[in-house]
Computed example of a mutant assay.
Amino acid sequence: MSLNTLISTILLQLCLAPLGLAAPVSTEALDNSWQYGTGGGLLGLVVLILDVIVFVEVLKSSRPPVQKLVWCLVVFLFPVIGMIIYYLFSNRSAYQRGAGYETLA
């Protein structure tokens, strides 16, 4: 293992260590442990996957860069509500790239 790899591994572990310390510690029974954090493990994972889908859809669209930035910020700052607002009010059909079929010559 080279020195650069070793140093980068140590730095990565030092950067990730505070995340483990930031997790809530329950002194109660583990009955309500699913309520900690961002809504629980499975619910948080579903929201994360749907938000990533929204980010990819926004970034692949033909919107101007300012509109892309605004939509990404809305979804990033308000993950659930921003995703709902995007799907209801974004006029996605007008900005789809490659939508529809091309006519053959």
Rank of each mutant, 00 (worst) to 15 (best):
M1G: 15
S2C: 06
S2T: 12
L3E: 10
I7P: 04
S8L: 05
T9H: 06
I10S: 12
I10W: 00
I10E: 02
L11S: 02
L11C: 10
L12T: 10
L12C: 10
L12G: 05
Q13K: 06
L14C: 04
L16F: 03
L16R: 02
L16E: 03
A17L: 14
P18E: 07
L19W: 06
L21D: 10
A22N: 09
P24S: 05
P24I: 03
V25R: 14
S26F: 08
S26H: 09
T27K: 04
T27V: 03
T27F: 07
L30P: 15
L30W: 04
D31W: 05
D31Q: 13
S33W: 09
W34T: 04
Y36W: 11
Y36V: 02
T38F: 14
T38M: 09
T38Q: 15
G39H: 05
G41K: 12
G41N: 07
L42K: 08
L42V: 08
L43G: 08
L45F: 11
V46M: 10
V46T: 01
V46P: 09
V47D: 14
V47P: 11
V47E: 11
L48F: 14
L48R: 12
L48H: 11
L48S: 15
L50I: 13
L50V: 10
D51L: 02
D51W: 02
D51E: 14
D51Y: 01
V52E: 10
V52C: 11
F55D: 10
F55W: 09
V56T: 05
V56C: 15
E57H: 06
E57S: 06
E57W: 02
E57D: 13
E57N: 10
E57P: 01
L59Y: 03
L59W: 04
K60C: 08
K60I: 03
S61P: 01
S61F: 00
S62W: 00
S62N: 05
S62R: 06
R63L: 13
R63C: 10
P64R: 07
V66Y: 08
V66H: 12
V66M: 15
Q67K: 11
Q67F: 06
K68R: 12
K68Y: 00
K68D: 02
K68Q: 01
K68I: 00
W71Q: 07
W71I: 00
W71V: 00
C72M: 01
C72T: 00
C72R: 00
L73H: 09
L73K: 01
V74M: 11
V74L: 09
V74A: 01
V75P: 03
F76W: 01
F76V: 01
F76D: 03
F76Q: 02
L77S: 13
L77N: 10
F78E: 03
V80S: 15
I81E: 09
M83E: 06
M83V: 09
I85A: 14
Y86A: 03
L88T: 13
N91I: 02
N91K: 13
S93C: 05
A94Q: 14
Q96A: 12
R97W: 04
A99T: 05
A99V: 01
A99R: 13
Y101C: 13
L104A: 11
